[in-house]
Write a protein that binds this DNA or RNA. Structure first.
Lengths: 279, 279
DNA sequence: CGGGACGTTGACTCAAATCAATAACCGTGG
DNA sequence: CCACGGTTATTGATTTGAGTCAACGTCCCG
């Protein structure tokens, strides 16, 4: 049956097919003007961009529009229905990033990436217009390099905004902080700076707000990470002592505590006990 | 002075003014190609989009690039430095949405809006390229209505993603849920459906993940809102009984509890007491 | 040197996570 | 049509992580 994932067919389109509900699997093709009307962008020069055909795809309730990690080839515009966009952690925890409905874009965060950083499934029977990223960038490329740059930048901004969810997700405060540090480290590296040692440009209060915790909690979390030997901290100077350990730790969920982490915590407890005895 | 932090290397380009600290206010003007190189989009046709001049703006540490609520006229590309993007609640609580650095866009969420939904301040001395939204949409308009639609859609997706922060912000679970319901109500209205009564398409678990709480907490929060007379709930059928009350409630912060809310909570406590006596 | 913002740490409390049990709902197939 | 298993929702009991309040040390800039 057509049950499985999605075999979705031929990009074959014929300009002209009607939008009826003929067959669920065969994508119907509509004119671009349909899409533009949906997006309320049909003002201005209507006949200009003309009748570029845009396939319509139907998705059943519970079915995935695209999977996390799948190659990103298209973006989608919701014509009818609702979707949830989410990311799945290693331990299976599903973090919902957004609910999207009519006239919203889907999958745009993948424009700047190879693969989709998130998945989308329909919450009810739905239909979307499908636009190939290649086409989008081509059209732009011919007209304006700036426009293409903007698309890419916007896409990455969207991706980064999605990372906010990882930070504020329902996990322990130390985990949030470690995720923050790992991200920051990557970014420093991308800018040609040291990924191991850097200067925080923001206050504890700013970090706290970003992570969704109290600023005292950020302080405490820094202390804990330091105690566990993952980082060294002095005010805004941070050194990542154990990058791998930190990454492993940052993957923890509230319930599931990583093995390496647990042992590190026990070791530090030992240290504490010894220190206490010395006194 | 320039002593402490970092007096960043004058990657002095010329093309008129030197990068020195001449005048902070007088924007320097660079060629578009500079911007494209920064964004790594200079491949392809280099000479094509040519030498459209792009102003460069310098921002001192602590200075605002743009304010929340200010008219949105430009987007910005960070050349050097770091910014924090944030929204300020009625009670003054500052919710940080993101930290952005070199080669990131700033202010793109305002492309689809009249005003900036968030503000941005520099965390260190910084410089940005300034691109007028008008120019961006004009350039596109000439070439492709689709491209313009994509810009708008991407912008609104970014805005919506920012709202996720409101949901997961450090506030009481009932407040998060009420914010969620208010947003949903708006969206339903925008799609021509009833804003007062609607069917939730997502499970409690999905909502919980989106709000950053346990799914039991979502259930309890629904019950509380119902007890306070703000909503009526039956499984996935929701009716907003007191839209204004709900909106007022959704503006609460963890510390600051709205007066109307407090009285509603007391009234419901009374009801409970009476019920207990009857038994 | 002094004042104000920033950072750390401790003690206490409470909101929410967790664990657990039950009830309502839904699609499926007899 | 109803019986059934599984998912989903509600509610209660218990525990705990983190918010809050408070005190103190530190850094920085005027």
């Amino acid at each position: 049956m057509n049950t499985s994932t999605q075999q979705w067919p031929p990009r074959s389109f014929r300009l002209g097919t009607v939008a009826g509900l003929a067959s669920t699997d065969a994508p119907q093709v509509n004119a671009l003007s349909e899409l533009l009307r949906l997006m309320r962008s049909d003002d201005g020069v209507p006949g200009k961009a003309g009748d570029l055909p845009v396939p319509l795809r139907r998705v059943h309730a519970g079915e995935a529009l695209f999977h996390e990690g799948a190659r990103a080839e298209s973006i989608y515009f919701v014509r009818t229905g609702t979707f949830k966009v989410f990311r799945t952690a290693d331990d299976g925890y599903e973090q919902v990033l957004s609910f999207v409905g009519r006239a919203d874009v889907l999958g745009f965060d993948a424009v700047c990436a190879e693969v989709h950083p998130s998945g989308a499934v329909a919450l009810e029977d739905s239909s979307v217009y499908v636009v190939l990223v290649r086409d989008l960038l081509l059209i732009d490329g011919r007209a304006s390099a700036l426009s293409r740059a903007v698309h890419l930048a916007a896409s990455s901004a969207l991706t980064r905004q999605g990372e906010l969810a990882d930070m504020m997700a329902a996990v322990a405060a130390e985990v949030r902080l470690s995720r923050f540090l790992v991200r920051l480290s990557h970014r420093m590296a991308a800018c040609g700076q040291s990924a191991r040692r850097f200067h925080l440009r923001m206050s504890r209060r700013d970090i706290a707000s970003y992570l969704g915790v109290a600023h005292e909690t950020v302080s405490r979390s820094f202390s804990s990470l330091a105690l566990w030997g993952l980082v060294r901290v002095n005010n805004r100077e941070v050194e990542l002592l154990d990058m791998e350990g930190l990454k492993a730790f940052s993957r923890n969920t509230r319930k599931q505590v990583d093995e390496a982490t647990r042992s590190a915590m026990e070791r530090s407890a030992d240290v504490l006990r010894e220190t206490a005895q010395a006194a």
